[in-house]
Amino acid sequence: MEREIVIPGQLLSENKADSGPGTYVKDGKVYSLLYGVKNAKNKITVIPFSGKYIPSPRDYVIGTVIDVTPSNWIFDIGSPYDGLLHVSEYPRRVDSDKMVSTMDFGSSVLLRIKDVNSSMKVELTMRERGLRSLDVGRVIEVTPTKVPRIIGHGGSMVSLLKKETNCEMFVGQNGRIWINGKDSEMDLLTEAIELIMKHSHTSGLTDRISHFLNNEDDVVSEKDDAVLEKDLAEDEEDEGEIREDTYRKVDALLENDD
């Protein structure tokens, strides 16, 4: 399988039938629209290194309540467009005076996108299995274009992460990840996710993450620890110097005053 880093305007193919997402056709030739990685399976697609989440119907997302109107909750879904959740899309019947007590400002909620119209009005729903308000755990944000890396081939990465850290985990397509477990396990999972983000363009990622999670102590941190210790030592030194200096200056000042 042919893969390479491509830049906007780069010629990808002479055959316009190869054009997939992230490409455009001009004069019967296919060019890249994005700065990212070319992927030539059936059609040529370009997966960008970065970019905002653009909502599309049936996506699962994690949103945060930013406003409550008499009949709608308005959600920030990490995209240029806000999402609307109508009361009728909440699993239970909610009176309009109970809306804030049901989901208050700042609540994180697992949602699904019901519809997006041409002017990018985003309608959300919670009337589906598994959709709920997230009251425990943490929400981490990653680049939405890298969500497939977190999930891995056929969900392998998610399974691995869940199994190794004993955390519950849900990955929203808008790049928000909800995790829940013991604090130390969540810390480890967060670190693993950061590692995935950093190395998202490399191959054999699942293996390496597995290695990371299993040998956390000896792989990562031997070096880090050394650096840390050095830092600490330096810090101490610095502090000592400053103190001495300052004392001397203070002494001098006091003498002058006298």
């Binding site: 990685v37 497939p148 999930i151 985990m169 363009h201």
Partner: peptide, 18 residues
């Protein structure tokens, strides 16, 4: 600088995590 398959149906995958 080479990732693995990314072309999967992300929606289905996300669903499985859900």
């Amino acid at each position: 600088e080479i990732p693995e398959d990314e072309e999967e149906d992300v929606s289905a995958l996300v669903e499985s995590t859900l």
